[in-house]
Nucleic acid binder design. Sequence first.
DNA 1: ATGCCATTGATACAATGA
Length: 264
Amino acid sequence: MLNNSSSTRIATYNVNGISARLPVLLKWLEETQPDIVCLQELKAIQENFPEKAIRDLGYNVIWHGQKSWNGVAILAYNEEIKEIRRVLPGDPEDVHSRYIEAFVGDLLVGGLYLPNGNPAPGPKFDYKLGWMKRFETHTNELLKQNVPVVLCGDYNVIPTEKDVYKPERWVDDALFRPESREAFHQLTNKGWIDALRKLYPDETIYTFWDYFRNAYGRDAGLRIDHFLINPMLENRLIKAGVDRHVRGWEKSSDHAPVWIELAK
DNA sequence: ATGCCATTGATACAATGA
């Protein structure tokens, strides 16, 4: 395909507002040419998604917008997207646009924007933990299926102390609280593979730098955007990385794009 | 401990984010 005919590049990018981010998004897509992209935090109603600009680059796209907050999308270059669901099962009352899932070729792709959960404790933290429980239930179902699965997005979880510039500052934060980390580790315990950690077990890897306090300049980052892949894909995982330089662009998101490459 | 910045938008002396 685009990057390399022998591999598929899948990327995830929390854009923090698709309207404000469109020039940066298009520039990054043209520069890195991923085959499949999951976007989070569209912060736009369904009608305001820039469908034409995305399609003009050769991507098919499905998305689930929401006024002001949340919103997720899946893009696929020159490949059909077969939508499976656009809601995380398990709670009919939950109307946040935080999950979208589709087949792209033989690959099942889930894009997620997991709740932030601050302040903790409180109702927002309860919502986060409830969402994670529902997510685990759903991923258990996915593990039973005999298909390759990629679950990527903004997990809003710092998995370990290695994944934050100053752990002691984050102990009471919903992203780093033991409950959040344990819920994330439940997933890896069940067989999901944290793709970037698998390839880089000891490196410091960040995917987010706060807009405050010159966080990017100081490299005061967090690793909260993740790729979980099922065991079927373990031997096809060949590369992974963070497009850190995009975080340094004018008008960038506070997240950087993250990607993996799978052998065909 | 707080604010620091950025985005969306009953354009706010707000709400949310991480």
